[in-house]
Design a binder for these strands. Structure first.
Lengths: 233, 233
DNA sequence: GTTTGATTTAAACACATGTTTGAATACCTG
DNA sequence: CAGGTATTCAAACATGTGTTTAAATCAAAC
């Protein structure tokens, strides 16, 4: 947990959950709040979303957020955690697959493989369940979040993964100076984050083109783009 | 002006500025507000910046913002306008230089030239005067701004330029499908916007490397990266 | 049925927000 | 100086914010 969460009657903090058959109901409320918060944070931003709009969308009482999560910031933390735990597992597994199968074959990891291992699960996560599209937009935006409190909550969930892909990229491209590689990875994160934000808002340019590509071809386009940028000499 | 700005005693709306020698003083106050707002919007975001923090940083009265600008949103509009008018002029001129000198020589515009004509003035704008660094961060963040009101204010200033570079890119790469080119340009905007945000916050990854490159080498790295991505087949 | 603890509820709290007001002040014109 | 306008100022306004409280409700345990 990042920020000191004010907890007095927070159920998570009572010694033991004595009555567990109430779990269903409580999980329901928590899920409803998480779902509503995810969507509203993604659409309006953290600071521009009120707890009242969240709870009214979720159909629960205003005090439920502070009761179940402790604070608005802790709620954001849980919104990230719920999706990022499984997503990061997938990305980490794929990245280490690329690394290991290269090592087994006595060669360097392929740049395109590394980038795809990171990008594909991220973009495909959109199609992985209700509300997942909102979450992807939320993440894409949080990368550029001005508020440091919000940014730190997010980074605490993705920092290890960012370090991992940076390591493997160094193995894939040992001849490119480390600081160059660092910035090329930043360019990649920028392109990916932007894609995550804009993928379902076709009205970016004033002309009404861009019928909105499917996830697979978008992934392919992005991987191709950043691979070329990463490998150029 | 984008949003309906509530104006009752707004000086800009009086028929004529009869007494012009007060312009100095008034401009002072407006400049002070613009400077403070630019910095605070960049650091904390639009919604997380209060008019009270702006006016207290500027050393002026709280009511000055509504008096001189009409509303908080109109202030943001002017913050963009002040910097974007000259910056867009430079970028447009450079882009049309590339286009025209190619046409004169009877060849297609060079992809790297096009991208550099857009990226170089943007990143170099950081070094162009006091507060310009803040503005660059502000723009980089606004690209991903959740709030539609804020986003529209920004887009109204950059839309023509985005269309121009898209046109010239199509001339430079006529064999690449239009929708592919569109997304590659989006990837480029994403990478550029991310760079604008992160250029002076070295603490992105947990390791403390990245001594912060100078603007020129960063420009070179980014242009090289996106050129390769744009040209790949 | 009574007790016990978890959860929900309506109300309030304390404070921050953008905006507006009317009087005071500053400044130029005649 | 007088007259008039532009600007500043302190105060208030109306509303929205995250959080807290104490009572009410609920479900299982004994």
């Amino acid at each position: 947990m990042i920020r000191g969460v004010k907890t007095r009657r927070h159920p998570e903090n009572t010694r033991e959950k004595t009555y567990m058959s109430q779990a269903d109901t409580k999980q329901d409320t928590k899920q409803l709040i998480l779902d509503a918060a995810e969507r509203l944070f993604a659409r309006n931003g953290f600071h521009n979303t009120s707890l009242r709009s969240i709870t009214s969308k979720a159909g629960v009482n205003l005090a439920a957020v502070n009761y179940h999560f402790g604070s608005k910031g802790a709620l954001l933390d849980k919104v990230f955690e719920r999706r990022l735990l499984p997503l990061n597992k997938i990305r980490q597994d794929k990245l280490e697959d690329v690394r290991n199968s290269a090592k087994k074959q006595g060669r360097r990891p392929g740049v395109e493989d590394v980038l795809r291992a990171f990008i594909e699960p991220t973009l495909c996560f959109r199609n992985s369940g209700q509300g997942a599209e909102d979450f992807i937009v939320l993440v894409g935006r949080t990368i550029h979040e001005p508020d440091n409190t919000v940014l730190k909550i997010f980074l605490s969930h993705v920092d290890p993964l960012f370090n991992l892909i940076f390591e493997i990229l160094q193995e894939a491209l040992p001849d490119i100076p480390k600081d160059h590689l660092f910035w090329r990875l930043q360019f990649t994160f920028g392109a990916l984050g932007h894609t995550m934000c804009k993928v379902d808002r076709l009205q970016f340019l004033s002309e009404g083109l861009t019928p909105g590509p499917d996830t697979n071809s978008l992934t392919q386009m992005l991987v191709q783009f950043v691979t070329a940028g990463m490998e150029t000499t």
